[in-house]
Amino acid sequence: MTLDTSTIGDWADLPFFADELPTISSQLATDTRDILPPADQVFTALTRTPQADVRVVILGQDPYPTPGHAHGLAFSVAPDVRPLPRSLNNIFKEMVDDLGAAPLNGDLRFLADQGVLLLNTVLTVPAGEANGHKTLGWQKLTHQVLAAVSQTRPCAFVLWGKQAQSLAPHIASPKDSTNPSDGHLMIQTAHPSPLSARRGFFGSRPFSKINTWLAQRGEPTINWTDA
């Protein structure tokens, strides 16, 4: 697998790409397993949502390990995938309860185009081996992305589950806020997986909360349902 960073725009300035990516790339090049997502989709989250456009950050864990599912965005799947992964199905259930509707399929690229950064903490996975690349070093990219985005402007950060919540220390206070009390919106609940969704994810209404916060800031709200 050969990774191409030519499409990631202003994200390329993060130290990760000079300091850590060469080592990760060499490890991937010698890995004989089927690696997901395809090489040209590994950085889709960064390509699709430029740093200057980020308004919401939703953190995932690692890509779906089922071939044909992952395409570089956390929780998102290719539009023809049926049935939906169980975590995404629960996200859509909560969306229906919260907003009255959900997208017709699992392709969330339309959210990325509205400034929702759908970033996995680990960007690659061997097919059939969930968390198989958790020791490669991808997490350093997530740390730097969170620091860079949070320092720039107030954003909504969605941290579902303990793994995502453990990254909260990398979220800094925004430097350009005109009001000292005008900080980030932090949404921290249980993960939407079937094992934990009923422990606080269902009923949390994150989507309407984000839109209310954006509206109060005078920003366009997110069209979560692609309606």
Rank of each mutant, 00 (worst) to 15 (best):
186 M>S: 08
39 A>P: 08
124 T>L: 05
218 G>T: 04
165 Q>W: 03
27 Q>T: 00
2 T>Q: 14
188 Q>A: 15
222 I>A: 07
142 T>I: 05
196 S>H: 14
160 W>K: 01
59 L>H: 03
66 T>N: 12
190 A>C: 04
13 D>W: 01
214 L>S: 06
6 S>V: 03
2 T>Y: 11
83 P>K: 14
87 S>N: 11
56 V>P: 00
112 A>R: 08
143 H>F: 13
213 W>D: 07
90 N>P: 08
19 D>T: 15
140 K>I: 08
174 P>S: 02
86 R>W: 10
102 A>M: 00
100 G>S: 03
111 L>E: 01
45 A>R: 06
83 P>N: 14
82 R>I: 11
23 T>S: 15
222 I>H: 04
166 S>I: 01
118 L>V: 06
168 A>G: 00
82 R>N: 13
65 P>F: 02
72 G>Y: 06
145 V>M: 05
58 I>W: 01
166 S>Q: 09
34 D>L: 13
118 L>I: 04
215 A>W: 09
44 T>C: 02
156 A>W: 02
218 G>L: 05
189 T>I: 04
219 E>F: 11
96 V>C: 09
200 G>W: 06
86 R>G: 09
77 V>R: 06
11 W>V: 01
67 P>M: 01
220 P>G: 05
126 P>D: 08
137 G>L: 07
75 F>W: 10
213 W>F: 05
19 D>F: 00
19 D>M: 07
48 R>F: 05
30 T>H: 07
173 S>D: 14
206 P>W: 04
73 L>K: 01
79 P>D: 15
15 P>E: 11
147 A>D: 15
171 I>L: 02
81 V>H: 13
45 A>S: 13
80 D>C: 02
158 V>R: 05
89 N>M: 11
11 W>L: 07
155 C>K: 02
65 P>S: 09
177 S>G: 10
107 D>E: 15
79 P>N: 13
14 L>H: 03
65 P>L: 02
88 L>H: 10
71 H>Q: 11
92 F>E: 02
43 F>I: 03
97 D>N: 14
27 Q>M: 12
216 Q>H: 13
117 L>M: 12
77 V>T: 15
173 S>E: 13
123 L>G: 05
32 T>C: 04
35 I>K: 06
151 Q>A: 14
168 A>T: 08
38 P>S: 14
170 H>D: 04
154 P>V: 10
26 S>H: 13
227 A>Y: 06
105 N>P: 00
103 P>Q: 09
189 T>P: 08
187 I>R: 08
149 V>A: 10
174 P>T: 01
47 T>C: 12
182 D>Q: 15
82 R>C: 00
225 T>P: 07
88 L>S: 09
41 Q>D: 15
207 F>Y: 08
5 T>N: 02
60 G>A: 11
153 R>W: 10
128 G>R: 07
32 T>N: 12
173 S>W: 12
